Amino acid sequence: MFDLFVSAFVTLFVVIDPPGCAPIFAGLTSNAPPASARAMAIKACFIAACILFVFALFGEALLAALHIELNSFRIAGGIMLFLIALDMVFEKRTQRREERVEKVKATPEIEDVSVFPMAMPMLAGPGSIATIMLLMSQAQGTESTLVILAALSAVLVLSLIALIAAIPLMKLLGHSVEAVITRLLGVLLAALAAQYVIDGLREAMLG
Rank of each mutant, 00 (worst) to 15 (best):
A165G: 14
L169F: 06
F90D: 14
T29F: 04
I167A: 10
A119V: 04
N71R: 11
K105M: 13
T142D: 13
T11A: 09
L172C: 13
L83R: 04
P33R: 11
S7G: 09
E102Y: 03
A37Q: 08
M118D: 09
I68M: 12
A8V: 10
A204I: 02
L52V: 06
R74T: 02
M133E: 03
T142E: 14
I24E: 02
E98K: 12
L83Q: 07
M120Q: 07
E111N: 11
R96L: 12
T182P: 00
N31M: 08
A49C: 11
A130K: 10
A194V: 11
F9G: 01
N71Q: 15
E60M: 08
V6W: 09
V147A: 01
L149S: 02
V6A: 15
I16T: 03
A49F: 05
A56T: 03
A119R: 01
I42T: 07
G200D: 05
A48G: 12
F116C: 13
I24C: 07
I167C: 04
I164H: 01
Y196C: 14
L86W: 12
V54L: 13
S7D: 15
S114M: 04
E60F: 01
Q140T: 12
E203Y: 13
A166K: 00
M133N: 03
N31S: 13
A151F: 13
I110S: 03
F82M: 05
L123K: 01
A179T: 14
I24M: 08
L201C: 10
A37I: 10
F55G: 00
I16D: 02
K43D: 10
K105V: 09
L160N: 04
D112C: 10
E102G: 05
